[in-house]
Write a protein that binds this DNA or RNA. Structure first.
Lengths: 401, 401
DNA sequence: ACTAATTTGTAAACGGCCATGACGAAATAG
DNA sequence: CTATTTCGTCATGGCCGTTTACAAATTAGT
């Protein structure tokens, strides 16, 4: 009775690969693995019911995934229900691992995540990277990667890919850092500097943070706006469970949305950008504090103690954020706005003014704002999980081809 | 070497239908039809090369589409190339038709478009609909629809669906008008008021206008922001060849993006919304003109004649638009911004200040702004074509099921 | 305890669909 | 006029999910 509205790409032109039987098999393998992964543990019959294939078909698919070491048979379930109990299947804890890495302004971090989503190895190193050349920084990161990979391999894990989160804009090629103001890197291809043993993805930390929220956050919807802030204000737009990247890969630049068109000039060339009000530097200045290590902790601490000027600075930042987010919410109609990264820790003092602004400027119910529970781990976990999602999304590609 | 970035929905969870052989056949039928439609005329071999299947497979698919009356054999091609010439295939000009309808503030329009994209029948009626109840208006529209359908059927066309463009917000159910300020309609389900003979879709005129631009515009990219204005300022976000609709279907509300946070109050509850500067009423007021029929024509005429106050009003509107679009472009990184609807006709006087604002507020090259060539026909054509796209996207569904 | 009902997993037969390879048809090139 | 190239089709084969049937394992009822 109702024709489907045009929100997805057309099935004809959009799909790159020809629709052949091998492709069908491939997608069904992915569907089975996805279903088991999402539920944690599932019988063949339950998988069949869930993905719409017959039990017989699922059986052969499961056999293949077990043969590849991606699924494990846990043994008979113990249900209270009538009928023969199913044999529980679970994603294997050995086999492919996702290696996630993060380049921060003052730290490097690497972790390995298995197919089940568990962190199996990690390494962190605190280093002041601001203004340091890409070569040495990435060299140091590579050391950590090798260390984590060695540890993972000792646990029978095999890296399936490396994903690197970077505090800056990354081109759509997934390897070139176009602009990272806080590191002072420009147009740097990181691929030659990193180990070439596995598929590589480089992406904005805000994007990986949003993906972590999408995949790991409790009750996170499939359409939301994720706002994080590490010095700059990065946002990521998640639409129907996927990242909106933009033509050049620069989507989500919330920091330079004009908030007060005649406000103070911004290095970007504009005036009154959000970053001039809610950026780290701006907030510190407004609070009368000098830039130093761990500014977020400093601000949170002072605010906690009741420091009036810090609280006022954060309140004003919340107002500016609220104005920018009103525009974004009007444009995108997301289900929620999620505050992550540094903003999560400062949310108690940002939220009141932010939500006031959002409420007063919206006809009807305003877009709900939630706070991420992932803390500062988001981007790193998102990076590692993005590799795992790649395996889940096309297991056949990992095994051969 | 490079893992795919996560921009699309996962192949497992995202796809609703199980991946079975029938579904494969169905998608391949769509791929063939799509290929022929996109190229206008193609031989079986050319289709095979284009979509990646073998000639033999394409032959059977084409046979079926011909049997269904969706494809036609035009006869042997006349190429200068060596080898046996192919037999040209083209989409049938008889068979399914898309019925598009538009409810405007001062007019109703209906048209029928065949699978080839040609308009085969049309009807327009000028009526003042502002403040009129939905019943009579839609009743009158239904008369026009019946008239156009009768004409189409006389040409051996069979309506495959009805799509209605409305100047207001439409719920994601594709039938309920949530808010249409210029008609003064609220939460009105149009389905019971329209003929139930075919699948029905109701959508925002800005959305249909953007789709028309996407499908019919020359050189329109797959990622752009389409801005139109009929009294309010509607925008539509096209991402990867599909409409971004938002959770509630309200995405694209550019009119209420805050431009000057302390500006004049807006009926939406906010202050300094774009609509307060670039909305029809606001521009007329700024130009010192009273609201009347065809305000766009009036403004364009006066501006053409060199009326200074009108030009100033349009320049200021362009500035406000530029500020709002800077924010939107930062957030979405579209390939272009397309000005459509009323904005297209006023673009000579809007563009200079708009582009200045965009350029001054963007680091690096600003997002290019283009003007739609579709004029006021956009929404109507987009509506009719959306039905056609539905057929192209799943021809099997139209024939049976 | 024993039977009936229910559910699971597997095996064999079946049917649909695309690939493969071969072939005739229809054009060009020399 | 022949060799070459390309097109469309046909027969064959292999892959894959479905259908149907059945044994295994559990609960519910008596």
């Amino acid at each position: 009775m109702t024709a489907p509205p045009h929100e997805a790409r057309p099935p004809g032109a959009g799909r790159a690969l020809p629709d052949t039987q091998r492709g069908m098999r491939r997608r069904n393998l992915a569907r089975v693995l996805h279903a088991v992964s999402a539920e944690g543990s599932l019988s063949r019959a339950a998988v069949a019911a869930r993905i719409g294939l017959t039990r017989a078909a699922v059986s052969t698919l499961v056999d293949e995934l077990i043969r590849w070491g991606l699924l494990e048979e846990l043994g008979p379930e113990r249900p209270g229900r009538v009928g023969r109990p199913g044999s529980a299947l679970a994603v294997s804890g050995r086999g492919p691992a996702g290696i996630g890495a993060e380049i921060g302004v003052d730290h490097l971090a690497v972790c390995a995540v298995d197919l089940r989503g568990a962190v199996r190895a990690r390494a962190v190193r605190h280093t002041a990277n601001r203004g340091r050349a890409p070569g040495p920084v990435v060299g140091e990161l590579t050391e950590l990667v090798r260390h984590v990979v060695a540890e993972a391999e000792r646990e029978a894990l095999r890296p399936a890919g490396l994903a690197v989160a970077v505090p800056g804009l990354v081109a759509r090629d997934g390897r070139t850092v176009v602009r990272a103001p806080n590191l002072d890197w420009h147009d740097t291809d990181l691929a030659p500097l990193l180990p070439a043993d596995w598929p590589l993805t480089v992406d904005n930390e805000a994007n990986f943070g949003a993906l972590a929220e999408l995949w790991l956050g409790a009750g996170t919807p499939r359409d939301f706006l994720h706002v994080s802030a590490e010095i700059g204000i990065g946002a990521a737009v998640v639409v129907d469970g996927g990242l909106l990247r933009g033509t050049r890969g620069f989507a989500g630049e919330l920091g330079h949305v004009p908030v007060r068109p005649d406000g103070p000039p911004c290095p970007c060339g504009g005036r009154g950008c959000l970053e001039q009000y809610a950026g780290e530097e701006a907030v510190l200045r407004a609070a009368g504090l000098a830039p130093r290590e761990d500014p977020v902790g400093l601000l949170a601490g002072r605010a906690e103690q009741g420091d009036a000027s810090v609280r006022a600075a954060l309140r004003d930042a919340g107002t500016a954020l609220g104005i920018a987010l009103t525009g974004a919410a009007n444009l995108l109609d997301p289900e929620t706005v999620v505050l992550g990264g540094a903003l999560a820790g400062l949310s108690p003092w940002l939220l009141p003014s932010l939500e006031t602004e959002l409420r007063d400027r919206t006809a009807g119910p305003p877009c709900p704002v939630t706070v991420s529970g992932l803390g500062s781990e988001g981007p790193l976990l998102g990076a590692a999980h993005s590799v795992i999602r790649g395996v889940l999304d096309d297991p056949a590609a990992v095994v051969h081809g």
